[in-house]
Computed example of a mutant assay.
Amino acid sequence: MTAKIYVASHKIYPMPKDPLYQPIWVGHAGSKNPLDMPAGWIGDDTGDNISDKNSSFNELTALYWAWKNSDADVIGLVHYRRYFSMNHKKGLTNILTQAQLDTLLKQDQIILPKQRHYYIETNYSHYIHAHHAQPIDLVRTLIGKDFQASYDKIMQRRSQHLFNMMIMSRQELNEYAGWLFPILFQLEKEIDRSDYDAYEKRVFGFVGERLLDIFLDAKGKSFTEIPFVFEEKQNWIKKGGLFLARKVTGGRNGK
């Protein structure tokens, strides 16, 4: 059984040497220097791809590429600044190994990062205090009745799996991606983003993060959670200040 974990990056950055990991340049269709991609990297603009949507889909363009083009039996997605790490230590020598992955796959065919917990907000209120409300409201209709009970349940929870990080068997990924992307493509057609700033235009990546737990709950999927690390220092004071400011001002004013 072959496994490949794709490392999404939009710039040249140190990458793992372990062959388990494959760097993928996201948004490569819009790169100003398409020939500058390092040896061993791949672009998300080959084969069946949505590379030109990267500014609004974020790292999900890498997930789409892997779903459509990878021949691996197990497919994962991480980020150049975020990796799974069983010992919860930073550094590329501490990230998930093939041997560790093999052991985990004996338990479950879906591996996710540990959930992020919110203590004063629900998942829904956290989203609308950070982003425009319309997309997350509209997606409830687009997912269909079979998923709406799970939507309501997950939105009222105070924890969720974020960052579009995951490892799945081919069968599980086919089911998830085959459900996820048609919903996001339809959402793309139905919302007006003309007044969104560059950050908010990443809306389909943000919504996609929230759809994962809805899918897992509605389908009754079993999964294993493992630690992950941020390779770069996080400015939690700045993040906390921005969060409080959005909460006081009402976030994106429901637009």
Rank of each mutant, 00 (worst) to 15 (best):
Y124G: 05
A149W: 04
N123H: 08
E172S: 14
Q134N: 15
N87I: 11
M155E: 04
T97Q: 09
R81D: 10
H161R: 09
A177M: 11
D152V: 12
G76W: 08
K89W: 00
K153C: 03
Q148W: 00
D108C: 13
L142R: 00
V78R: 06
H88R: 15
I75F: 04
F163A: 11
I128R: 01
L112Q: 05
T61E: 05
S85L: 12
G91W: 02
D71G: 06
I120V: 05
F181K: 07
N123W: 06
I75P: 03
S70T: 06
S169P: 11
I128H: 01
A149H: 09
L101G: 05
Q115I: 07
D192T: 01
H161W: 12
N164S: 15
M168W: 01
D102Y: 00
P135C: 03
L184F: 13
L101M: 08
R170I: 11
S125C: 04
L187K: 02
G76V: 14
L184M: 09
N54I: 11
K189Y: 00
K145I: 14
Y176M: 12
Y176E: 11
D137H: 01
H129I: 08
F84E: 11
T103K: 06
D152N: 14
D192H: 00
K189P: 09
E190K: 15
R158N: 08
Q115R: 11
M166G: 03
G76Q: 12
D152C: 07
V78Q: 04
I154V: 15
S56P: 02
L162V: 12
Y196A: 06
P113N: 09
H117P: 09
Q134W: 07
